[in-house]
Nucleic acid binder design. Structure first.
Lengths: 184, 184
DNA sequence: CCCGGTATTGAACGCTCGTTCAAACAGCTC
DNA sequence: GAGCTGTTTGAACGAGCGTTCAATACCGGG
């Protein structure tokens, strides 16, 4: 939770996005949720598109942090940690998953949103490839990128499917599948 | 493409949903896209929620048909066909993929949408399990359901990731992964 | 104490939204 | 052709939307 008004407004956007989808995000609803006056939203952010883009960038930063864990750990441990963290109860809440889904689906609404999305996706994937390479220096850079792409597919499926209802056992099997791909 | 006005209206909803997301679907935009007057939309469908729910049901039927292929083929062939069809160029167009994404993200907007989604998902998964069981009668019913769940994860990831940009080789590897899971 | 700029407020604007409805139109039977 | 039933039209309504803006509150430095 943020304390400055701009931060509270961004938090409000993400909360509403997750709760009701883009249809629930109006300038008035955002102001109400953030506990500020309507005019303040347009004071901090030029327009609605800029507001949503700022909220999008804020959440994407958290994603990148997923594949940049504690550098003091041994490489293999860092990789395993990163692969398991996507299935953490912390990230598999309905709020967070539906927020992710809403962010993805925003891409169709404006070109800027799509650019932010694909950029974050490729940053995430190359971060993952770097982790694999550190844990498995015997593999070529190309092979690591390939495996990162395959893991990305399974992880995206894991997120999406668990939003639609996925049992715990299937979830564990998916995480195991990712580890197998990374370390095969 | 439909010829009756109600069908043309549903087509218009799906077109607009895929093109601009839910934000692009207004009663007026739907009427314009379908080439009918505004009032006719509310004549065929009680309100906007009912309209979108009807469009949702229409597209889900196509999905179920994916796992119910030609019953004359041998079981193993039917399974392989179903697994490959999700990666067909016919289904991997941006229009269709972004439509799928929009449908998923609609679940947050109304309880009815969410119910339609999860219901279709479980119908699809059990259809897939039935195909696996027919191809591999030696497996237990439970094992087939497990494999269907695993394949569902990878397929969902395949769809979602290819919307964000996935190379052809990674796509082929994902399809192969599904076949390996089914026939292992 | 007052001044400067930054932060914040809420009323007001024009616009689009979803819904309603009386009217017109089409196809049909008698 | 009159009458009936089911379609189709577009104007109208009130509500909510994003944006603008003059007015107010806050606050550190002169």
């Amino acid at each position: 939770m943020s304390t400055d008004s701009a931060g509270r407004i961004l938090d409000a956007v993400l909360t509403l996005l997750s709760r009701h989808g883009i249809g629930g995000v109006s300038m008035r609803a955002v102001a109400r949720e953030a506990g500020v006056a309507l005019g303040l939203v347009n004071y901090h952010f030029t327009d609605k598109t800029g507001l949503i883009a700022a909220a999008l960038r804020r959440i994407e930063e958290q994603d990148i942090a997923l594949v940049e864990p504690d550098p003091d750990l041994p490489a293999a441990e860092r990789l395993r940690l990163a692969l398991r963290r996507v299935a953490d109860p912390e990230f598999l809440t309905t709020e967070y998953l539906s927020l992710r889904l809403q962010l993805w689906s925003l891409a169709q609404a404006a070109e800027e949103f799509e650019r932010i999305n694909t950029e974050a996706q490729s940053r995430y994937r190359s971060g993952l490839a770097r982790l694999i390479r550190a844990a498995r220096p015997d593999l070529s850079r190309y092979e690591c990128a390939k495996r990162a792409a395959d893991i990305d597919v399974v992880q995206n499926g894991l997120w999406l499917t668990s939003l639609l209802g996925l049992d715990r056992a299937a979830l564990r099997r998916a995480v195991k599948l990712c580890e197998d791909i990374a370390l095969a």
